[in-house]
Computed example of a mutant assay.
Amino acid sequence: MAIYNDISGILLADKPGQITSFKTVHKIKKILNVKKTGHCGTLDPAATGLLIVLVGKATKLQDKFMKQDKVYRSSFLLGTITDSGDLDGKVLELKDASLVTEEGVKKALKKFEGEIFQIPPMFSALKINGKKLCDLARKGIEVERAPRKITIKKIELLSFKDNIADVRVECSSGTYIRTLAEDVGKILGCGATVAKLRREKIGNFNVADAVLPQDLDNKEILEAKLIQTVF
C-alpha cells in the first residue's frame, strides 16, 4: 500500500511551454508524493504562465478558483489562419495583412470589450457528450458548439509590428484567447492566429509569485511555496 505525504495547500506554478497542464500537475504530484492534486483552468500546451495547482484537501477549492477572472498577454499573428487558432495547428490560409494599421487594430480590439458571445474552439478541453473536443478535432470530426457568453473587461494593444499585435486581455472565466484572435482577424479582414500566449493572473494570484519552470522538479522549493489556507 502506497504511503503519501499528508500535505495540503495551493501552489502557484509558472507552466513552461510545450507541455500540457495535466503533465505539469502530475509531475508536481509525484515530486510531492501526494494522493490528490488538481488545477484551476487548463492552459494550451504551447502556452506559458500561471497554473493554480491544488494539493490534498485544497482540491475542494477548485470550483471557486475556476470561476475567477483571468489576465492574459498574447501575440496575435495577422494574416495567418490555422485549424487550431495557434501555431501548433495546421496552416489553412495565408492572407495579406500589409495594409492593417495600428489604429485599425485598436479599433478592432475595442469591438470586443464588454459582454460578448464566443463559440468554443474544436481544439479545446471542453467536453460535449462526455468527449473532449480536442480529441474529436484530431480525428477530423467537427461538432456544433453553442455560443457562450463571456466578458472582456479590458483589452489593450501593447505594440504592433511586422503583423504581430501584442495584447493584454482581462477577461472572465471561460474566455478562449485563440477564438478572440481569430475573431479580431475576421474584423480586420486578414485572419489571425495566436503566436504566443501567457497567463499572468487568476483572481488575485499573479504569475510573478509562482514557482519558476526550472524549479518545478525541486521538492524543497515546492513545499516552501505551498500556500496554506482554510479548506
Rank of each mutant, 00 (worst) to 15 (best):
M1V: 10
A2Q: 11
A2T: 06
I7F: 13
L11Q: 08
G17A: 11
T20V: 14
T20A: 12
T24D: 14
T24P: 04
V25L: 11
H26L: 14
K27Y: 03
K27S: 12
K27H: 09
K29G: 05
I31K: 07
V34F: 05
T37K: 05
T42G: 05
A46F: 15
A47S: 09
T48E: 07
G49R: 08
L51K: 08
L51T: 15
I52D: 09
I52S: 11
V53G: 08
V53Q: 08
G56Q: 04
K60Q: 10
L61H: 15
Q62E: 12
D63Q: 11
F65A: 03
M66Q: 09
K67T: 06
R73H: 01
G85C: 10
D86T: 12
L87S: 09
D88N: 06
G89R: 08
V91P: 06
S98N: 02
S98F: 08
S98A: 10
L99E: 15
V100T: 07
V100S: 05
T101H: 13
T101Q: 03
E102C: 15
E103P: 11
V105H: 11
K106H: 00
A108F: 00
F112M: 07
F112Q: 10
F112H: 10
E113A: 06
G114I: 02
G114R: 05
I116K: 07
Q118V: 02
I119C: 07
P121V: 00
L126A: 07
L126G: 05
I128F: 09
N129F: 00
K139Q: 02
V143T: 13
V143I: 14
A146H: 11
T151M: 02
I155E: 00
I164R: 09
I164Y: 09
I164Q: 02
V167H: 04
C171M: 00
S173F: 02
S173C: 14
Y176R: 02
R178Y: 02
V184N: 09
G185Q: 03
G185V: 06
G185T: 03
K186T: 03
K186Y: 07
K186C: 00
G189N: 01
G189Y: 02
A195N: 12
K196Q: 07
L197I: 03
R199H: 11
R199C: 14
K201V: 03
K201N: 09
I202C: 07
G203L: 04
N204I: 15
F205N: 04
F205Q: 07
V207R: 06
A210L: 04
V211F: 11
L212H: 13
L212I: 13
L212T: 12
P213V: 12
D217F: 10
N218Q: 06
K219G: 10
E220D: 12
L222M: 15
E223F: 15
A224R: 15
A224L: 13
L226D: 11
I227H: 13
T229D: 01
V230M: 14
